[in-house]
């Protein structure tokens, strides 16, 4: 018995050394990728949602609860995207540091300007997010704000390395400014697309293209045969540049529409790690922008 008590004491002691790397838990892969840019080797990242998983639907797996238990900081997308599992993970983690309102609880959406916030909403409209479109990770200007928010949060938690995080933020800003020059030369202005899910609205706003319609009749509701027929009509009439979907949602439908109409289908990674080449947020953006071209 004494041996076990000693063992537990040791676990406690090793669990909270003040100078170890910051334990970061993120829900989505892209959040982990930005965190890596800011925290580099001073942080240790665990990502709860896998790249090929639909972030709207996940189970609060015990392994996720355990990761949250050990976290110094939990960073999530917000705007209710993770509402189906994250509140449960946070409460069951038995970790006081990551509870809402604590410095270890970082809602990344607090740094961005949500779009498509409905003035009234009910569930007859499907899975509409009342706080606005939660898929802001394709928006460089929003991501810049998120990175800054992260740098502040890391500096709060790990004050000793505050300068390190600020410096990395500056490096990130510079790199992003460079990339944006490159990206803005890829003109997507005036292009028209049909998309499966409302995933590209921020990007459309930043790059001046248009999403004409959605293969999903309402967010989160798979299309009926009738709706597919309507889509075919729309595609024939409006002649979009492509039908876009992700590997996680809508690939099959987009390819079927492409076959029926002759308009090309593009399957894009929805998050970091969904394809081999999209290994961080920059390459994810690259791949999406090239795909849309």
């Amino acid at each position: 018995m004494k041996k076990y008590i000693a063992l537990y004491l040791m676990i406690f002691l090793f669990a909270a050394p003040a100078f170890a790397e910051v334990k970061v838990v993120t829900t989505l892969p892209w959040i982990g990728s930005i965190a890596k840019e800011i925290g580099k080797d001073k942080i240790n990242i665990t990502t709860l949602i896998k790249p090929m998983q639909d972030p709207h639907f996940a189970d609060a797996k015990p392994s996720m609860i355990l990761a949250a238990r050990k976290a110094d900081i939990l960073m999530y997308n917000g705007l209710d995207l993770e509402i189906g599992y994250l509140p449960r993970i946070i409460e069951s983690s038995n970790n006081p540091n990551i509870q809402p309102g604590k410095t270890g609880n970082l809602d990344c959406s607090q740094f961005i300007m949500p779009i498509e916030k409905p003035s009234s909403v009910d569930r007859s409209m499907g899975d509409v997010h009342p706080l606005g479109n939660p898929h802001y990770h394709f928006s460089p200007k929003n991501i810049l704000n998120v990175a800054e928010g992260m740098a502040n949060a890391f500096s709060d938690i790990d004050a000793v390395n505050a300068d390190f995080y600020r410096n990395n933020l500056q490096l990130f800003k510079d790199r992003l400014a460079d990339k944006q020059k490159q990206w803005s030369s890829r003109t997507l202005k005036g292009k028209k697309y049909i998309a499966y899910h409302k995933l590209y609205e921020y990007l459309a706003q930043d790059y001046g293209f248009q999403i004409l319609g959605y293969i999903e009749p309402k967010p989160g509701i798979p299309p009926s045969a009738g709706h597919i027929e309507e889509m075919i009509e729309l595609i024939k009439k409006a002649k979009p540049d492509a039908v876009i979907a992700t590997f996680v949602a809508g690939k099959k439908e987009a390819e079927a529409l492409s076959l029926r109409t002759g308009v090309r289908s593009v399957v894009l990674p929805q998050d970091v790690g969904a394809t081999e080449t999209a290994k961080d947020w920059f390459s994810l953006m690259n791949e999406v922008l090239i795909g849309l071209k």
């Binding site: 676990i11 015990p62 609860i65 355990l66 050990k70 069951s92 983690s93 038995n94």
Partner: peptide, 12 residues
Amino acid sequence: LTYLPPLSFYTL
């Protein structure tokens, strides 16, 4: 009262 120790696998 529940206790979730920070082990390498989940044990509640």
